[in-house]
Design a protein around this nucleic acid. Structure first.
Lengths: 151, 151
DNA sequence: ATTCTAAATAAGAATATTACTATTTAGGAG
DNA sequence: CTCCTAAATAGTAATATTCTTATTTAGAAT
């Protein structure tokens, strides 16, 4: 998977820096969903000087290339990032514990994209999240922020 | 429209402060889409001491009550807010000029909501934006940030 | 009108994210 | 291997948004 990402970057004319390698390593090592800060924490173990800016810049690049997805959450510790190993899909986000879970599909069809493209507007992408409450946060009263949803 | 919003707030047990009135006035006066900062600028004309925090707090409350929608944009001046005069719908956002346009519909069906509610997850809302390029930003090269999309 | 209390605010601080600029570097060309 | 240049980074700063806490206030009850 790592080589696949590096090849994608090379193929688009991007350079492979040691920081970039470390960020990709962290993305792949940090669990399914990671925050920018979590990536930084991992990267700092080998590259103490990297800045959050570099993490965000690389995440943006990987998102442009379609290799990473950003899940918008109401969490205090920021949005979640995910390496797209499978295809595009949408997510459930629990409003109590803040964790995300992948849906195996995305309800937006290509016909929706075309319908959306009115008045000469060309649709290139979309962002969709479902918000609500996961099973654990419904049954255990107010969620405590752990043992909830999928990692 | 203003009375409708005030009644909605009263009906849910919320107090009507002069700041809150001014924020609602600004929401209704500031054009279809407004940023939090634009609301603050208008409100400051009559209430010089209000803080952005108060603007955001009131926007969040109105969103909880379903009276206001937030459109997530990649703009440097923040997200856009819209009073929901008609029903729920989705938006187009131009990645060049940053302006938004309402679609007259939302492609998410109730069956999608039910499908999304897997593993005991209860879906209560969703957030969807379409991104791309409006007609003006496609034809005029790199957009200059005005004369684009709908207000 | 006075009192009371939960709701709302102001002020300041914290945090996530983005932008700017000077410096460094990957990797191709010679 | 050395040179060159566009790409990438570090450092710093700016900005959008959220949080904390002490203070104020709307509106209900008296």
């Amino acid at each position: 998977m790592k080589e696949k990402l590096l090849d994608l970057l090379r193929g688009r004319g991007h350079k492979i820096t040691s920081q970039r390698r470390a960020i990709i390593d962290a993305l792949l090592a940090g669990g399914h969903f990671v925050t920018a800060q979590q990536i930084l924490d991992i990267v700092k173990q080998t590259h103490p000087d990297v800045s959050l800016d570099t993490v965000y810049r690389n995440l943006s690049l990987l998102m442009e290339l379609g290799a990473v997805d950003e899940i918008r959450t109401p969490n205090r510790d920021g949005n979640l990032f995910e390496v797209l190993t499978t295809g595009h899909h949408s997510h459930l986000v629990c409003l109590t514990c803040g964790r995300a879970k992948c849906l195996p599909f995305c309800p937006i069809k290509s016909s929706d994209m075309e319908q959306a493209g009115v008045d000469g507007f060309t649709v290139t992408s979309h962002s969709l999240e479902f918000y609500g409450y996961c099973r654990e946060c419904q049954t255990s009263g107010a969620g405590e922020g752990f043992s909830c949803c999928t990692k």
